[in-house]
Amino acid sequence: MVLITLVSSDEQNFPVERELLKQSGTIETLIVNMNLDDEDTDAAAMPIPLPNVKGDVLEKVIQWMEHHKGDPVKEGDNEDNNAEIVVPQWDDDFFKPAMYGSKHLELTVAASYLDIKNLLTLSCKAISNTFKGKTGPQIREEWGVPNEFTPEEEEAIRKENEWSE
């Protein structure tokens, strides 16, 4: 089993099975460019630095990839297909502890950076699910978003959206 070492922004090393990394478009490109798949190359001696991902986030990403090992990798960006996706129970549980926290968002940003389409889709879906059925003030409350609107602006927005109340 070929192991490839990923290095997080805080210098933590994560040896990861080569097969798992096929889910990440970014890492896959790096592996190809660095010829790490060549038999002559000592993959273990050539760690892949990921300066945009912190250690704890990378650990979560690897945990997710391990669970989804062998899943078909999503190709391209088809928004219409996303509409039908339901977040599976395991993933829901995976995101839940970090929900409403910066960890979940960091995980989403990392999924985008590492180009792991399935993780990105599910993560965005999980975030959007937290918004469903909530009013603007409730969203502000849950996500700690400061209210930037003046009372006049709020009144104007309220009138504009009366139909959805």
Binding site: E79, N82, A83, T108, V109, S112, L120, T121, C124, K125, I127, S128, N129, F131, K132, G133, K134, T135, G136, P137, I139, R140, W143, V145, P146, N147, E148, F149, I157, R158, N161, S164
Partner: peptide
């Protein structure tokens, strides 16, 4: 670009509510 992805997942009614939470 990630926020667009998240917004895209929401039905119209929820998106409008989200749009009222901040500028």
């Amino acid at each position: 670009d990630l926020m667009f992805l998240i917004f895209n997942e929401l039905p119209t009614v929820d998106r409008i509510q989200l749009g009222t939470s901040c500028k």
